[in-house]
């Protein structure tokens, strides 16, 4: 029940985010979701692309001297109304799992917001959420968004 995310190291230099997005855009890579972690000295771009584009994206990034990695995250559907997110987070917290980061998709599906979650324990999070009837999307479903 995981989806693949690409993380890219970003130097804390003017124009570096534009360069990465331009590089991907020029190569027809469609970013479905994106977030940036920023620190004093560097940043990390995290993004989701269609599965069929992952390999190509990584190749392009490496060819241009970027450091990038693919890892698994969880994609959760959350009712698009107040308290929708906090209910899901409470379930995770009650299970004693912490969250490293979260961000959302640009587009919604029906009445749901689509959220990426990177918990400290991925498998157990999936188990907790399924037990409580929270809908999660797999890679094939993501690709359709």
């Amino acid at each position: 029940m995981f989806v693949k995310q690409i993380s890219i190291y970003l130097e804390n230099v003017k124009g570096s985010l534009r360069e990465i997005t331009q590089l991907l855009g020029d190569n027809n890579i469609d970013l479905k979701a994106l977030s940036i972690a920023d620190t004093m000295s560097f940043g990390i771009v995290r993004c989701i692309v269609a599965e069929e584009q992952i390999e190509k994206t990584m190749e392009i990034l490496r060819e241009h001297g970027n450091i990038a990695k693919v890892n698994n995250v969880i994609c959760v559907c959350i009712p698009d109304k107040p308290s929708g997110l906090s209910k899901v987070l409470t379930l995770i917290e009650d299970a004693g799992i912490s969250i490293e980061y979260t961000y959302s998709f640009y587009k919604n599906t029906g009445d749901n917001a689509v959220l990426i979650i990177r918990p400290s324990e991925k498998r157990r999070t999936v188990a907790v959420l399924s037990e409580n009837g929270i809908q999660m999307l797999n890679q094939a479903e993501i690709d359709k968004i």
């Binding site: 995290r46 450091i67 990038a68 990695k69």
Partner: peptide
């Protein structure tokens, strides 16, 4: 120089 082995998706790991 940063290498892929050192890199991860979380800030905490790189720090």
């Amino acid at each position: 120089e940063l290498t892929e082995d050192m890199f991860s998706d979380t800030v905490a790991h790189i720090e």
